[in-house]
């Protein structure tokens, strides 16, 4: 399989390099791959190893507004909450109706999505009240 892929790669490279019209596309693709690789490498070396705390500190250093920083952190929290809810809803859907097809499947999927969104709205209200009880966002700073 590897030999087959390598042979294909050689054939494609030969065709693109020998035809003048295709050379431009080949080099554009190559430059895109190089740019993307270098950009990701910079972030992988300097920012990612620090984890979320490091990324948050980077945001502080970049003078990102506090509201936006809180929003990013709460979004991260919300992702795990919603993921958990959505997965359990999908499992219950599969158990109740294992052989749904096409339109019926899409319809029930829509219902699940809608109910998860409503639950999320409810949860957000409770989270909001909890935040208020703890004193709001006042004093939410880099030290936390």
């Amino acid at each position: 399989m590897k030999k087959f892929l390598l042979a294909n790669l050689i054939v494609i490279a030969t065709i693109t390099l020998t035809y003048p019209d295709m050379q431009e596309g080949f080099f554009t693709g190559l430059s895109i791959a190089l740019k993307g690789g270098v950009i990701y490498l910079i972030f992988a070396l300097f920012v990612f190893p620090k984890g979320f705390a490091g990324i948050y500190k980077t945001l502080v250093l970049m003078h990102v507004p506090e509201k936006l920083r809180i929003l990013i952190l709460l979004t991260l929290r919300g992702i795990f909450i919603l993921k958990e809810r959505f997965e359990s809803a999908l499992i219950s859907l599969k158990l109740r109706a294992p052989e749904q097809k096409n339109f019926a499947k899409l319809k029930s999927f829509t219902y699940v999505t809608g109910s998860v969104l409503l639950q999320a709205a409810d949860r957000s209200e409770r989270m909001e009240r909890a935040v208020k009880c703890r004193g709001g966002f006042g004093g939410f700073n880099n030290s936390r």
Binding site: I70, L71, L74, T75, L82, A120
Partner: peptide, 23 residues
């Protein structure tokens, strides 16, 4: 957007943002 979001609406914004992420 940040100017228009009131403090108490940040949580709802964050949850919709995470729904957008997951979707």
């Amino acid at each position: 957007g940040l100017k228009k979001i009131q403090d108490y609406k940040i949580v709802r914004t964050a949850l919709l943002s995470s729904a957008f992420f997951l979707a």
